[in-house]
């Protein structure tokens, strides 16, 4: 259930898949994204020309997207950006996309010192928006401030 916080910010219940807390400015991907072929490994930029967020930087952001898409190599690309430090700070998905779930879990196995939490938010997902300070809590809750800083 969505709850108001900080005056007009929101707090959503989520299901933690890869545990840990994270904080960053949110970026909502309006369409599903294939990491492989869709993200530049060297700097985390969206390089899929057909994607609405083409050209956006994902490094250090709390990425919010419905689910993944396309190539099954996405898991390795996600793990690699987490390893190399060009990955997102955390992921909020609407559905447990196996490709992305596996990417963060494999990264957690290999590189435990570089956590990238992933949570599933089924209810209230549409309330999340771009450009807001956003926190993922270890219990899976996602908090988003009303205004950008």
């Amino acid at each position: 259930m969505a709850q108001k916080v900080n005056g007009t910010g929101i707090r959503l219940e989520g299901r933690p898949v890869s545990a840990g807390g994270a904080e960053g400015v949110s970026l909502v991907l309006d369409d599903p994204l294939s990491w492989w072929g869709g993200i530049d490994l060297s700097d985390g930029t969206v390089i899929d020309r057909n994607h609405p967020q083409f050209g956006a930087g994902t490094t250090g952001r709390i990425l919010i997207l419905p689910y993944g898409r396309g190539s099954s190599n996405g898991s390795a690309v996600l793990a690699e950006v987490i390893r190399s430090g060009t990955g997102p700070a955390g992921l909020v998905l609407q559905a447990a996309d196996p490709i992305l779930v596996v990417g963060v879990m494999a990264a957690a196995e290999l590189y435990p010192d570089r956590p990238c939490p992933l949570v599933i938010v089924e209810e209230g997902y549409d309330l999340l928006s771009t450009g807001r300070p956003t926190r993922i809590h270890p219990d899976g809750a996602v908090e988003q401030d009303a205004y950008g800083r």
């Binding site: 490994l41 190599n73 390795a76 690309v77 390893r83 190399s84 447990a96 779930v101 599933i120």
Partner: peptide, 30 residues
């Protein structure tokens, strides 16, 4: 088991063959 849990699976099943996609080198993590 982690993927199964995250995806709401009730159990694991036997599979009779596999085709491995991870052979493409995408960076150190591969």
């Amino acid at each position: 088991a982690g993927l199964a849990e995250a995806s709401g699976a009730r159990r694991l099943i036997d599979i009779s063959s596999a085709h491995i996609d991870g052979t493409l080198y995408l960076g150190r993590a591969s």
